[in-house]
């Protein structure tokens, strides 16, 4: 009886101590996490593991009704435009057949020239398709979670493409799911070429849907509508992947409209081009 009272008294003291110093304790803990999270990869990877292991199954369940509604809405829209689609497809098919003939000729010519030059081909890219299971919206988050992980051959640094162009790269590969850093994220830096002149620059995200161009040569003149593609510098992305077009130039700020529409990201293609660039030395969890 006495022991039970002693335990109760201890618990009461611990509780009142915690209540009194809760604010200081939690504020220190939060600042500690912020500082350590910057320096220590272990803490961040624990968070990422919680996200991919614990939350992904819950998100999968919750996304069922959302996907169902989206699917029905899509079906209705498609039905309404069926005739128009059909005509477009017939025209496209004709065009493709012409391209196929030209491609065959070019392929055989290319093979002959490669043989003459003794050209060594780069490794074949491996790709995996994955569904987007979480898209944390808001002004502060520009990353998505996809349902493919190390089990499917995905690894940190892999390139993530949507059907229109570059979407981002794998920031963390979990067992079954992976985190994608979108090109619009504030931490994204991509070396690019601006075509048609081929100026080198860097595309940086600012957490808005339209990333900015920086580090452009002083005398470079770019115009609205110029195409932005990866340059392949730093060896993270291969060259010539389409990103977007220059949308505006105002007060020295050049904004790029990505070809990929984040709101329509549903299925993405994760491609391992065999390039790990500067990420090669960073240990992947």
């Amino acid at each position: 009886m006495q022991q039970a009272n002693r335990v109760k008294s201890h618990l009461y003291h611990v509780k009142s101590f915690l209540q009194r110093f809760a604010l200081i304790l939690l504020v220190i803990l939060a600042f500690g996490l912020m500082l350590l999270g910057k320096a220590d990869n272990v803490i961040v990877s624990v968070g990422q593991k919680v996200l991919t292991v614990v939350m992904v199954p819950v998100l999968e369940v919750l996304s069922v009704p959302v996907n169902a509604v989206k699917s029905y809405a899509g079906d209705v829209q498609e039905l309404a435009a069926l005739k128009e689609y059909n005509q477009k497809l017939i025209a496209q098919n004709q065009e493709m057949l012409e391209y196929k003939k030209q491609a065959k000729l070019l392929k055989s010519e290319n093979e002959k020239l490669a043989k003459l030059l003794n050209y060594k081909k780069p490794p074949k890219a491996k790709s995996v398709s994955a569904r987007v299971v979480a898209d944390p919206g808001g002004a502060f988050a520009q990353s998505i979670l996809v349902l493919a992980g190390r089990e499917d051959g995905v690894s940190k640094g892999d390139v993530v493409m949507a059907k229109d162009g570059l979407a981002g790269r794998i920031a963390y590969a979990g067992e079954k799911a992976s985190q994608v850093l979108l090109i619009s994220d504030v931490n994204s830096r991509i070396p690019v070429f601006i075509e048609p002149h081929g100026y080198r620059a860097v595309l940086i995200g600012d957490n808005t849907p339209k990333p900015q161009i920086t580090a452009l040569p002083e005398k470079a003149e770019v115009a609205v509508g110029d195409k932005v593609v990866t340059s392949g510098d730093a060896g993270v992305f291969p060259a010539e992947i389409e990103i977007g077009v220059i949308e505006s130039k105002k007060d020295g700020i050049i904004k790029v409209k990505p070809l990929v529409n984040r709101d329509r990201l549903d299925i993405v293609n994760i491609i391992d081009f065999g390039l790990k660039g500067i990420l090669e030395n960073i240990k992947c969890e």
Partner: peptide, 25 residues
């Protein structure tokens, strides 16, 4: 309580892939 507020924020940081501790604070 305040502890629940802290953990809600931490969970949001993890889920939204933000630097850990920001929403917790």
């Amino acid at each position: 309580g305040m502890f629940q507020a802290f953990f809600s924020g931490l969970l949001l940081d993890i889920l939204f892939m933000l630097p850990l501790g920001i929403n917790a604070l």
